[in-house]
Amino acid sequence: MSVSHNTVKQSVSVFAPASIGNVSVGFDVLGLAVKPIDGTLLGDVVSVSATTSGESSLTVIGKFADKLPSNKEDNIVWSCLLLFNEKLLTVKQTSILVDIVLDKKMPVGSGLGSSACSVVAALAALNAFYAKYHDFSFSENELLKMTGQMEAQISGSLHYDNVAPCYLGGLQLMVPDVDIISRTLPNFADCYYVMAYPGIEVSTKAARDVLPTQYSRSDVITFGQNLATFVDACHRQDKSQAFSVLTDVIAEPYRTDLLPKYKASRDYLTTQGALAVGISGSGPTLFCVCDSQPQAEQFALWLQEHYLQTALGFVHVCKVDEVGATEI
Rank of each mutant, 00 (worst) to 15 (best):
V231R: 09
E305H: 09
V60E: 07
S139Q: 06
P176M: 10
D257P: 09
A131H: 04
G62I: 09
H316K: 10
T7W: 03
F84W: 01
L88M: 00
A33R: 05
A164R: 13
C191G: 03
W302K: 08
S118R: 02
P294M: 11
A18S: 14
V194R: 10
K92T: 03
L246W: 04
I200C: 05
V101T: 12
C117D: 13
V3E: 10
T229Q: 06
Y167R: 01
D219N: 15
T271F: 05
T40D: 09
Y160Q: 06
L303S: 07
L42D: 04
I250Y: 14
V98D: 00
Q10P: 04
V108K: 07
A196P: 08
S216I: 06
S57T: 10
K104W: 01
P198V: 05
A311V: 08
Y215G: 02
T204L: 08
D161I: 08
K72C: 11
S157E: 15
V45R: 06
R266L: 13
L286W: 07
V91Q: 03
L144C: 05
Q295L: 04
S70W: 01
S282P: 08
N187E: 14
S280T: 13
F188H: 10
T326W: 09
M195H: 07
V220T: 10
V46F: 01
V8Y: 07
V202K: 07
V46C: 13
Q149S: 07
R236A: 11
G54S: 12
E151K: 04
Q225Y: 02
Q225I: 01
S240Y: 04
K239F: 02
F138Q: 01
T184Q: 11
I279L: 11
S49T: 01
G169L: 13
D232H: 15
Y215H: 09
T256L: 09
V194Y: 09
M1W: 01
L126T: 07
N127R: 00
L88S: 01
H5K: 12
F299V: 12
M1Q: 07
A16C: 13
T204W: 05
A16H: 05
G273D: 15
A122L: 02
R255L: 15
R217A: 05
V3M: 10
S203G: 07
D257T: 13
F299P: 08
V91W: 06
L301S: 12
V46W: 15
Y160I: 03
L82P: 00
N226I: 03
L82W: 02
V320C: 05
A189E: 15
V320G: 00
D209H: 00
S137N: 12
S218R: 02
L83V: 00
L259Y: 15
A131S: 11
H5P: 03
